[in-house]
Design a protein around this nucleic acid. Sequence first.
RNA 1: GGAGAGAUGCCUGAGUGGUUAAAGGAGCAGUUUGCUAAACUGUCACCGGUGUAAGCUGGUGCAUGGGUUCGAAUCCCAUUCUCUCCGCCA
Length: 424
Amino acid sequence: MLTLSIFRENKDKVIRGLHKKHVKNPEEIVEQVLLLDRQRRSLQAERDETQNQMNALSKEIGNLMKSGNVEEAEKAKMRSSSLKEKVKELTEQTENLEQELTQLLYTIPNLPHESVPEGQSAEDNVIVQEGGTIPSLPENALAHWDLAHQYNILDFELGNKVTGAGFPFYKGKGAKLVRALINFFLEEAEKAGYTEIQAPHIVNETSGYGTGQLPDKEGQMYKIHQTDLYLIPTAEVPLTNMYRDIILEEKDFPIKLAGYTPCFRAEAGSWGAHVRGLNRLHQFDKVEIVRIERPENSYDVLEEMCAHVQSLLEKLELPYRRIKLCGGDISFNAALCYDFEVFSAGQKKWLEVSSVSNFESFQANRLKLRYRTKEGKIQLAHTLNGSALAIPRVLSALLENNQTPHGILIPKVLQPYCRFDKID
RNA sequence: GGAGAGAUGCCUGAGUGGUUAAAGGAGCAGUUUGCUAAACUGUCACCGGUGUAAGCUGGUGCAUGGGUUCGAAUCCCAUUCUCUCCGCCA
């Protein structure tokens, strides 16, 4: 959620940012926010004034009672009743306006960083970096869903039977490879200074609002029947909400968290050939890294996180590219976002395996996540997160790119974790 | 699941309807000091008003949400959580 102060202090910046994000009628939205804000403040001033009179009168009644002047006290009570009505009415109005304002703010996305390119859709995203080599496979190279069948390491039909589409089984070396990837990613994060966290896989509604999944992406999360709880769509939600309602001190920085969790996505999206196999699932495994930082550092930290993701992809010897999302494609919450994609040579497609974002103070404002500066001022912190990495699509690329007539070769760096060098 | 007790600021903790989030401690800042220690002073958060600002000032918050009352940390109702005992249990 954007802060009110940015609307008051720099509404042109807000309008420009919302235009870049292809929001309709930003001018109208901004004026509406400012109007509600003005109304709320003047109403509150009136309410506070009336409440003040009320408090003074109560005090007076107390004194009269004490001195035994019951008659005067009763008269004062009569006077207070109309004040009481007025306070009640004004409070109600103020609260209504405040709620209306908050609801409106919830619908307004974050402002893109000035370096975010203009653009409508994924077509306008900018490739900022490429690495690794795309393997040249023979014509008859297989996609991972066929390889999975051939080597009996993944079973989609079984998932359909036991749960439903989008919930595959990993078997034998397939299962071990998943576990190896999780361990590899967690240990790399640890080496980079991240604290490992085992977080709950279920969160409450407040946490959903805190990181911005609610109300914007209600449909993406599985809600648990007859409760206000949700299955997490990413570890970002529990990890970042650890710091909800917290005022940090200078000495608490840097905050670097890493967590492995399964991720659950209801994904009311399309189904078909382009989401076959592991490409899009209702449940998948992911290691997530989260940073909480002072504003002046957050963009350096974003680069640091990208460098970490990049090193993982290089160690896994995967062909990858880093993409800067354009204004129209960047998520609701993010100010700047890089996607990392790997090339999966069997299906000849680029697959997104990581998304690294700086939310600036957008989440922190909802979370009430603040810190005290050296000067003693309290201000909003910046939050960042990134996948490091999402397992199924990495697995897809590993299986497809490393297939040979004699089996699928496992990259060196993973061998100590899975303790085999080939799937055959 | 049953019975009981409880929830007050960063921590400890007083407060059973009438000025006040007492008091102490920690941390931080300032003053003093050759340095250190000590001492002294200040220091909860949020929303407003006023002011260029320092500041001055109103309101709110004692787990959460309601209620009673002129007035609620205090009384009533509901909810959540914590602790103790019992039961059950990976």
